[in-house]
Design a protein around this nucleic acid. Structure first.
Lengths: 258, 258
DNA sequence: CGTCTACTTGAAGTGAGTCAATAATGGTGG
DNA sequence: CCACCATTATTGACTCACTTCAAGTAGACG
């Protein structure tokens, strides 16, 4: 299935990883890889295409590859014993999926929209990282970035109420430039309510109620199932509550990347 | 403050990291470092001692060092805007604290009990990791292990009820050999109720109620503030609910380490 | 032995969950 | 292109688990 990686529809030259760097005071995530590093990674990569709903891999499968999202959205899902789902993360452009899980994947990962991704075979990647410690350090950075994101997720789930959780989630979407339509403020919601609910730790009815409340209060405008727009930014920040300061460090910042 | 690292009160030869490995099918965490790697790390390390309540570092401090716990218990804490605390993790023997946070620490870390730890200066460690990609890969393994732990924490906070959360927490303590007294089943609870509550996402009253309920139901025996014992293992697993299978992969396993 | 803090216990309140009925979407085929 | 249908989302009434507030009690430490 893998076509040549030379035609990366990226504007760039190959796999791409964003995170906050080890050094430097910049708090906004930026590209970690040099053009040369991206080229070297591209040499091991193939480009894969998935349609919405397709699985990149399943929980407990042998961990044979790491994926670097080029376009589209993916989600990482765990099935609990009682049949409920937990969505652990959504992945967008620049994100790294299935990173070093031990010998088997710890969760399933599924395309939410049609998806393109670099597929980096785990063994070849491991060899490359062993030969190139500087590149490896960039992967280590990315992983520590992911760890902080997971910890913020844990704070959200442990401490925030329904309105804060949903607002925070909308803010998270709003920070992704690829979800903005044209020049206007419209933001696409690529996933359905069940995915949102499983991600923010609520039931879909509660997600719906919060969305309608924010709409009624004229904080946001909800346009159908897959689109919204922030109308009153101050009220919106208010809705996120004290959550803003804790959470905004570390999410992709669409503007301040040099 | 740092004394010579040659006198590691460890039985071992220097810093120690446990995690599940990249290769091999073993699901139980094991020592990642070879004797030689531990010696090399020991060359950069100093041993620090902290009394209960002392901070290893504060949130937003420049991230100058990574710590590897030798003995005692530490916690990682974030202060929310409204004055509440979130405890993100507890750290025990073998754990790595403050790993590559970017240029500044993302949380505060505080000793819960008297604590001994190797202090590894960040710049020296970074140089070593750049020179030794195999060692670096072990750190990368540990970090991906931490990520999975954080994700399990997120599942717990998002999906489980009070009884499951507290039981899971007790199970987590029970899995730490250093908390077991002598040969009996008594387990020490090193932290206070507020720390437990902030970790499992409940109020202290709810933690207390669950503890008393499990005690009344003769599932566990609670002996004062800092000791408990599991009486009925089946009922205890029952209390954890479907949670067992999701959570037990990845916690330190006191027995099956070869 | 007394005092302070940490923990427990009870009663009342509330935010999110549950269950069930309706309504909107958007994909499909006529 | 429109009508139909299955799916997904909204809405309402009610319930319940956890929180909140308010005493009380027991450990720990000087």
């Amino acid at each position: 299935m893998g076509s040549s990686p030379s035609s990366a529809p990226d504007g760039g030259v190959g796999p791409s990883i964003f995170a906050t760097t080890l050094h430097g005071t910049a708090r906004a995530p930026r590209q970690l890889l040099s053009a040369d590093e991206r080229r070297r990674l591209a040499l091991l990569a193939s480009i894969q295409r998935y349609e919405a709903g397709a699985y990149l891999f399943h929980q407990d499968d042998p961990a044979t590859a790491v994926y670097n999202i080029i376009s589209g959205v993916a989600k990482s899902v765990t099935l609990l014993e009682d049949g409920r789902h937990a969505v652990l993360a959504f992945f967008f452009h620049h994100d790294l999926v299935g990173m070093f899980e031990g010998s088997r994947y710890a969760q399933s990962t599924q395309a939410v929209t049609p998806l393109t991704a670099y597929r980096l075979p785990a063994d070849a990647l491991e060899q490359l990282l062993r030969r190139d410690p500087n590149l490896q350090l960039h992967f280590l950075c990315k992983l520590s970035h992911e760890l902080r994101v997971a910890q913020r997720q844990a704070i959200m789930l442990g401490k925030f109420n329904a309105v804060q959780r949903v607002s925070l989630f909308l803010d998270f979407l709003d920070r992704h430039p690829e979800l903005h339509e044209r020049e206007n403020e419209q933001v696409t919601i690529p996933m359905d309510r069940a995915d949102i609910a499983d991600y923010v730790g609520l039931r879909i009815e509660s997600v719906s109620r919060v969305l309608q409340k924010l709409h009624r209060d004229r904080v946001i405008h909800v346009d159908g199932r897959h689109r919204f727009r922030i109308i009153d930014r101050d009220a919106f920040n208010q809705a996120m509550g004290g959550a803003v300061a804790e959470m905004d460090r570390g999410f992709a910042d669409p503007v301040s990347v040099p």
